[in-house]
Structure formats: C-alpha cells, structure tokens
Design a protein around this nucleic acid. Sequence first.
DNA 1: CTGTCTTGTGCAATGCATTGCATCGCGATG
DNA 2: CATCGCGATGCAATGCATTGCACAAGACAG
Lengths: 361, 361
Amino acid sequence: MSLHQVARACKALHHTFVDRSSARVTLKDIARLAGVHPATASRALDPARGDMLTPETRDRVRRVAQEAGYQVNSFARSLRKNSSGMVGVVVADVANPFLPPILRGIEQIIRAEQKLLLIAETHDDGSTLLEIIDHFVARRVDAVILSAAHLGDEHAVASLAEKIPVVLAVRSVGSARFPTITHDDVLGGQLAAEHLVSLGHRDLAQLRGPMDVSSFRGREQGFAAVMSTTTALERFVDQSATAPTVEEGRRLAKAILDTPGRHPTAFFAHNDLMAVGALEALRDRGLTCPRDISIVGYNDAPLSNHVNPPLTTVRLPSLELGRRVATLALAVIAGSPTEPTIEKLPPELVIRQSTAAPSHP
Amino acid sequence: MSLHQVARACKALHHTFVDRSSARVTLKDIARLAGVHPATASRALDPARGDMLTPETRDRVRRVAQEAGYQVNSFARSLRKNSSGMVGVVVADVANPFLPPILRGIEQIIRAEQKLLLIAETHDDGSTLLEIIDHFVARRVDAVILSAAHLGDEHAVASLAEKIPVVLAVRSVGSARFPTITHDDVLGGQLAAEHLVSLGHRDLAQLRGPMDVSSFRGREQGFAAVMSTTTALERFVDQSATAPTVEEGRRLAKAILDTPGRHPTAFFAHNDLMAVGALEALRDRGLTCPRDISIVGYNDAPLSNHVNPPLTTVRLPSLELGRRVATLALAVIAGSPTEPTIEKLPPELVIRQSTAAPSHP
DNA sequence: CTGTCTTGTGCAATGCATTGCATCGCGATG
DNA sequence: CATCGCGATGCAATGCATTGCACAAGACAG
C-alpha cells in the first residue's frame, strides 16, 4: 500500500466522520433546475438586475435557489468582480477601552451593507502595520479604515491609498491628504484646560501620551493654547508616555512628583488609563486627589466613573465616530469623489470628583 | 453624449486622480518573465512545493516575482483551493473587557500562520448569530472560533460544524460534542465561595449572570457546590441578569437589599461589571464595602483594581485561552481528528479590598 | 546498448460567477 | 407583409492560480 493510498484512505475515513464534502450547489445547478441558462440565473439572483427578467422567470429561479439552499461562491464572485465585500479595520490595540464603541459603530454600518469586517492590530508597530496593509491589499479588501496611523505614516498610507480606498479614523497623519474623521482633540484639550483654570489652578502639568500620534498631539496643543492665554503656568514636562497605559501614567506622574520644589496642583492626563496611573502615583506618595492634586482624564473609559475618585474626563462620541467613518468608507467605495476632508467630532467634558479648586495652605 | 459615455468619462477622470487601475501582475506574467510555464511558477512560489524544482529555476522565478511585486490573487487561489485563509471569530460583544486578551491571543497565533481574522459580534442575539454563521459559511472561512454560544445553540453549532470546523471558546454549548476550551468556571465559583466562607461569611448571595451561558452557569454551580458542603447559607435569588453589565449588577443588588430583614454579608457577582454595579447599589443605600457587605467579582477586568474598593476577583488566563483556542482551531483545520474534548483552564483568586470578615454587631 | 527509474517541467482542466454581446421572438409600425 | 425595435434570454469569454497527469531528458543498472 503506497503512501499515497494511505493518505487517501485516511481522508476517506475522515469524511465518514465529518462530511464536509460540501457538494455545493452551484449557479449552474440552479439554472438547470429552473430550466434556464446560468447567466439568467445569475441575473435573477442579483437584486439590482432582477428587473431585467420576466417576473415569473426571476421568481422561479429565486424559489429554486432558496429551496436548494444555494449560496454564491464568494471566491468566484470576488474573482470576477475583483472586490471582496470586506472592509479592513486597522487598530492599534483591541484592548484599548476606547475602541469597542468605535468598532461597534463601524460594524453596525458595515454589516447593514452585507459586508464583513476584517480587524487587525498593529500594537503601534510600524512594520506590523506594513504587514497588515500587505494582507489587506492581497485580500483585496474594498476599503481600509485605519485608526492606527502615526504622524510619520503618511508615506505608507499614501502607497496604500494608491491601491485601496483608505479612510482615516481617530488619528490623522500629518497632512490632510486623506478623508479623515477624528475627535476634536484640540477642543478636548481646551476643555480640560479651561475647566482646571476656572477652578483656580495656576500650576498645571500634562501627562502626555505618545507624541507621534495625532490625537495626543491635539490634546497637548489644545491644552497649551489655553495656558498661553491665561496667567496659569504649564509646567513643562520633558517626557511623554511611550504608550497610553496605567504604568506610563504612573511613571510620568512620579517623575513630576519627584522633582524638587512645589508640585503642580493639577494634571491633565492624555487618557483615563494614564490618569489612573497618576492616581496610583499620588497614593504612593501619600497625596490625595483632588485635595492635593486634581486630575482630568480623557476618553471616559468604562469604569473610569468608578475609580477612586471618579474621574473628571473628556467624553468622546466614539460610537458616532465609528458610524460616520464607516459611512464615509462606504461612500468612498461607491466611488464618490474622495475629498481629502478632515472632520472633527466635538467631545464633551464630564465633571466628576477628581477635580476641585486647589487648596491654599 | 450618452449616459454610458458620461459614466465612462467620469471613470477616466477619476482615474487621473487616483489610479487604482491595478494592472496587476499575474502568475502568467511572472512565468513569462522567468521563461517558464505558469505551473512551474506556481510551484516555485509555493514554499511547500519549491523543492520539486531545480533550485536555479525556483530562485529565478522567485526573484522575478519579487522584482515585479507579484502578489497572488487570493480570490483565484481560494477559488481553486476552496479555502479562504481566514478564521472567523464570533464574540458576543467586543466591548466586554474580558475579550481583548483572548482576541489578542488568538490573533498572535493566527497571524503567525499567515491567516487573517474575521471578527463579528452577536450582541447575544440568536438571529444575529445565525446571520453571522451564514456569512462565514459563504465566505468559506477555514474555521470558526465561537465564543458567543448559548446553551441552547447546540443545534445551530452542529449545523455549522457540518460545513466548517468549529472550535468553542469560553462558552460551551450543552453537550461536549465539539472541541472546546473554556475557563474552569466551576472552579472559579468555588474559589470565590471558599474565600468568602473562610472569611466567616454565613449568609451569601450570588448576583448571577445570564443563565443560558455556560460560563455563568459554571460559576453558579461551583459556588453552590461549596455552599452545600458548609454550614453557610446561600440566599436564593430569584432573578439573574439579562446581561452582565453594571446596570444589571446594580438592579440585582438593589433587589436583594430591598428584601425586608437582614441582608446577606457577602455577594458573589458573576463578573466585575456586575460587582461594580453592586458597589453602586450599596453606596446608594448608605452601605460600605467591605464593612457591611463583601463582594467578589469575576474576570479581573482592567481598572477593577482601581475601583473603590479594589475588587477581590477571579482572574482568568485569557491570553492563554486565546492562544490555545487558536492553536486548536489550526489543528482542526489541518485535519487532525476532531476529538470533541473540553479543556478547562484554571482561574486564580485575586484578593483585594472588597472582601473582609463580616462585622458582628 | 537497451530498459527502467527518477526528476523536472509542461499541458490542460478545474473551480464558479459575471457580463458584453448576440440572438430570438414577438408586437408594433409603415 | 416586411421591417424595425425592444425585451428576454442564451452564449462564451473572462478572471487567476492550482494540480493530476503526461512527457521528456538524464541517470543508472543490467
């Protein structure tokens, strides 16, 4: 018994257990059963082209297809149409709590369009991004929603955009050469700053997120802009976080608290996780929030209203952003002129208990 | 000028802006450039079949392909191979904080295999599940990782399994007819119960998650099993949550606290979000945790160590689960005999400050 | 030196839906 | 009655990679 034969026998055996033989019904079968030509069957099953046929023919074909449990072979269709019916989404990290609402918004729209979502993570790694882009291009994704862009990625995005429609979400690249929808982070930073200043704080510090990401940079600029128009002092902090995590927030806050002299009376953390890290740093130093230091977070992450103290934060319309970005992607796929617009969705300040007027000793 | 011509003109115009003409290099081109037959080129580019050729031929083809920037047309390949190189993942809700680590684990393994992940959400809705399954079948996903199963879904899963290899993650269906990897929720419930009992609690109540989901049911059983072997009393609570959310946790806790008479001294919430909801309910009633009531959560969700008080909870090896489940899926795809095993990963109790000995007045 | 085996490569069929063009038939019009 | 037109449907090419089989040339044994 040759090796070949053995292999075949195994296969046969396997099939007796799980028959995935998938003696699939093809369009030709339907056509035969309905007594028409495959081409006619194809048209009958295409909602857009169904009215090309006699209603009886069309309905007969549809009925037959229904009964036979026909499903198009999406490979064949894609091969012919050269489009996959999938939309690729690139995110930095699914675990980031601000993503799910965005993904959900995207999903709602995309699913309604009978398309499927392909999700991939870059972990903020440039070469992974390139790899993913390759995959998406190879898979002929109909469009890419990119929410993991760094400021330096313009070139990569441009070369992707040559091949596939691209929509930028949340994070923009340097220039506005691509259709983009982000949160209005400059405004967000302003809201945070104005809130703290209006409480009476005059010595403030930012706990900055990675500065090669447009959204953090926007927050920084908005915050700084307000500072420059008031008598308040923004304490310059040399470092920014390598990642917007609890650990990095703690590290940055510690660095500030370890600086000799008086410390600032308020922090603006570039996201809630970092704010929580700052909270930890305070606790470690025996300080309390907001009595000693007020903290404003960003994102209104789940549970950020349940930490101690509940965080004052900036809430982002993420579901809405997801929906818009998906709608935009769909429009671009449909071939509507790709205006390289950038749309910014306004955030909202949520005041809770991590901010208060500074205590004057 | 006919409508047709206008359309074409528009198209041409559009192309001058964004040339997606994608004059794609096909295998035939490569073959021609390398002076071989397409079949040979195909073999040269297939790592598994590369040694079938003369090294020179193979390398020449590869070089040419490289230089020409050749990429297989995945549709054509899939059509031929009748496999898509994608793995579908079905989850209940991406926003659920315990998912990201699992997804990440899955992604690590799947990406390493050059496959892509297709993610879809059911929102715990049965008909959505069916719809998604249809999509996945139509797209000829290589395997489905299903982590959104309800106990009653056995039939749907069986019919899916006829067409595509299925692996169950996190949640099992009633019987163990499919390869499954879950957390050991019975053990998790036990750990929670034992911890509370050993602290001296004798009057306890569960805040139960949806009982049509195996993982919540496991937690309940593990907890109840310990109760039955001790002198402690499990307060029977009629209701269970319709969804494992903060709101539902609060509702359930309120219902218990509103019952006349003494209240239990400890809650076991079936996940951290519900635990946080219970925390809120306590606060609303002027009670404090753990002085009046101890609470054990489940999942060790992000920030659950930062709520007030930090939650005692059950930590799950989710990343590991994701990795294993993906590995299992890969094995099943590769055709290894589909033993309908169920593997349970042990959780771990994390003691923080939401639990303490009951105060005896 | 012939026969057999091996190894490398070519041939052609295959998978399946889509779509531009051709055709057929029928009713309408001159 | 011949012709034109139009609507419905059939025909066949197309998209591209994969793979079983066949064939050829070279190696080696008898």
